[in-house]
Design a protein around this nucleic acid. Structure first.
Lengths: 145, 145
DNA sequence: CAGTATCCTCGAGGATACTG
DNA sequence: CAGTATCCTCGAGGATACTG
C-alpha cells in the first residue's frame, strides 16, 4: 500500500531509539553530558544497562566514542550527524509533553539564547494548513513534485 | 537545574506513547484505521495486548471510544485533540527514519495533496539557526520574552 | 573511572480458548 | 465482531561484585 514507506520509517526509528533509557541517554548527550559516570549519575541507570545502551547507540551510528585522555584510555560519547539529526524528534516529543503535562500550563518552548517562541507544528508551506502523518508520503528526492 | 522542565516533559511523553505497539497504534489511527479488528490485522498484535494498549491510550486521553452502531454496541477509536497533537512528533520520527533508513535514499517527505516538500528541522524564526534540544527552555506563556 | 560478569526475579509478550 | 481470561515462557531490568 501507499503508506508502506512511512510505516517502516517509524518502525525503524523506534527500533533504534524507541526505548526509555535510550532516548534519555540521547537527550542527555544533547544537553552536554558526555561521560559514562555523568550519564549514570544523572539517569540513575544500572551500569550494565548504560553500557549496553551506549554500545547499541554506537553500533547504530547515533553516538560515537571520542577519546579524551590516554593512559588510561578514556572515551566520551558524542552524537554523530545521524544522532544530532534526532533533535527535531526530541524537541517535538518534549513539546508535546510540555503542552499536556506541564505543572502550570500554559507554557511555551523558546530558544534559550534569544527567547523567541518556537512553533514546530507541521504546516505545508504552500497550502498553509496543518499536516497530519496520514497526509504525508515519501518520494524520491529527484522526482518532480 | 534549568533543564528540569524539559526532562520531565520528555519522560512524560515517552511514559504515554514510548512503546512500540502504542506508537504504532496511534499512527494507524492517524492513518484512518479505527476499529479493533482492523488494528489487530494491520499490526499483527495479540488481541489482549491491543486491548490493553487501547485502554491505556483512552485512560491517558489520547484516544477515545466512539460508538458507531448499537445492538450490539460497537465502538471505534478516534484521536482526541491531545492525540491529534502528536502529529508533529510522529512526523519527526517518521522523517528521521526515512532519512536514515530509506531503502533508496535520498527521499523527501511531501504533503500528499500538493506534493510540497516539508521541512521540520527546528529553526529559530528570529535567529534563523537550527535549534537543538539543549538550546530550548520552557517558560510561562504569559512571561515576557 | 569505566566499564564487564553474574545472578536473580518479576512481569511483559504472546498464544489460545472462551464470551456476549 | 470485539473483546476478556488464562497460562506459559523467556528475557529484560536491576543489584552487586569484580577488573584494568
Amino acid at each position: 500500500m501507499v503508506l508502506d514507506k512511512e510505516t517502516s520509517s517509524i518502525e525503524a526509528t523506534i527500533a533504534v531509539v524507541g526505548e526509555r533509557w535510550t532516548i534519555l541517554i540521547v537527550r542527555d548527550i544533547f544537553r552536554g553530558i558526555h561521560r559514562f559516570s555523568q550519564l549514570q549519575e544523572d539517569l540513575g541507570i544500572a551500569k550494565n544497562l548504560l553500557s549496553e545502551r551506549l554500545a547499541h547507540l554506537v553500533e547504530e551510528g547515533v553516538v560515537e566514542r571520542v577519546p579524551y585522555q590516554d593512559r588510561p584510555l578514556r572515551c566520551e560519547y558524542r552524537l554523530t550527524p545521524k544522532g544530532a539529526d534526532l533533535s527535531a524528534s526530541l524537541i517535538a516529543l518534549m513539546k508535546w509533553g510540555d503542552r499536556w503535562y506541564a505543572d502550570d500550563p500554559p507554557t511555551v518552548l523558546v530558544h534559550r539564547t534569544c527567547g523567541t517562541p518556537l512553533d514546530l507544528d507541521p504546516t505545508c508551506p504552500r497550502c498553509s494548513v496543518a499536516v497530519t502523518p496520514g497526509q504525508i508520503r515519501s518520494q524520491n528526492a529527484t522526482e518532480e513534485s
